[in-house]
Amino acid sequence: LKKVVALYDYMPMNANDLQLRKGDEYFILEESNLPWWRARDKNGQEGYIPSNYVTEAE
Rank of each mutant, 00 (worst) to 15 (best):
Y10H: 06
P35K: 15
V5C: 05
Q19R: 12
G23C: 06
G47Q: 01
E30S: 10
M13V: 15
E25H: 14
E58Q: 13
P12L: 02
N16L: 11
P50V: 04
G47F: 03
K42S: 11
L29T: 06
W36M: 15
P35I: 15
Y10T: 04
G47R: 01
D9I: 02
Y8L: 10
V5E: 04
Y53L: 10
R40K: 10
Q45S: 12
K42A: 11
Y10P: 00
D41Y: 02
A39W: 02
N33Q: 11
L20Y: 01
G44A: 04
L7M: 10
N52T: 12
E46S: 06
L7V: 08
A6F: 01
D17T: 09
M13Q: 15
K2N: 05
F27D: 07
Y10E: 01
Q45R: 14
K2V: 05
L1P: 08
R38Y: 15
K42V: 11
I28V: 10
W37D: 02
Y26K: 00
R40A: 07
Q19V: 09
D24C: 12
S32D: 09
M11G: 06
D24P: 00
E30C: 10
D17F: 15
F27R: 04
A15T: 12
R21V: 15
A57P: 12
D9T: 05
P12Q: 04
W37R: 05
M13P: 07
A15V: 12
L7A: 04
R40Y: 05
D24N: 08
L1Q: 07
N43F: 13
M13D: 09
E31G: 08
R40S: 06
P12D: 02
D9C: 04
K2Q: 05
D41G: 05
S32H: 08
Y48R: 09
N43W: 13
E30L: 07
L34W: 15
L7N: 04
K2F: 08
I49P: 00
D9S: 06
L20Q: 00
Q45V: 13
A15H: 12
V4W: 07
L1D: 05
R21C: 10
A39E: 01
L18A: 01
V4H: 03
L34F: 14
I49M: 03
L29F: 07
L29Q: 03
R40E: 04
Y10R: 08
G44T: 02
E30K: 06
Y26C: 02
E58R: 07
E25T: 14
Y26T: 01
L18R: 00
R21L: 10
G47V: 01
E31S: 13
Y53I: 04
E25R: 05
Q45W: 08
L34P: 13
Q19H: 09
E58S: 14
E31W: 14
D9H: 04
P50C: 11
G23E: 03
W37M: 10
Y10F: 12
L1T: 07
N52V: 09
P35Y: 15
L34N: 14
N14L: 07
S32W: 08
R40W: 06
D17R: 09
F27E: 10
E31M: 14
P12N: 04
E46G: 02
Y26Q: 00
R38D: 02
I49W: 00
Y53F: 12
A15R: 12
E30P: 03
L18P: 01
P12I: 04
D9E: 04
N33W: 10
F27T: 10
Q19G: 12
K42G: 09
K42I: 10
G44Y: 04
D17V: 09
K3H: 06
A6L: 01
D17H: 15
E58C: 11
L1N: 07
L18S: 00
P50T: 03
E25L: 14
M13L: 14
P50F: 09
R21D: 06
V5Y: 11
F27G: 03
A39V: 12
N14S: 13
A6V: 02
K22S: 07
P50Q: 06
L20W: 01
P35C: 15
M13N: 12
Y8H: 10
L7G: 02
E56S: 13
P35H: 15
L7P: 01
N52C: 14
A57I: 15
E30G: 07
L29A: 03
K42W: 07
Q45Y: 11
G44N: 06
R40T: 06
W37H: 05
N43A: 10
R21A: 08
K3G: 03
T55P: 02
S51W: 13
Y48K: 06
L18E: 00
G23V: 01
A57F: 13
Y8K: 11
R21N: 11
V5L: 09
I28R: 02
E30I: 07
G47W: 02
Y53S: 07
E56G: 11
G23W: 04
D17W: 15
A15N: 11
Y10Q: 03
K22Y: 05
Q19D: 04
V4K: 03
P12C: 04
N33K: 11
K3W: 09
P12H: 03
K3C: 08
R21F: 13
E58T: 14
E58Y: 14
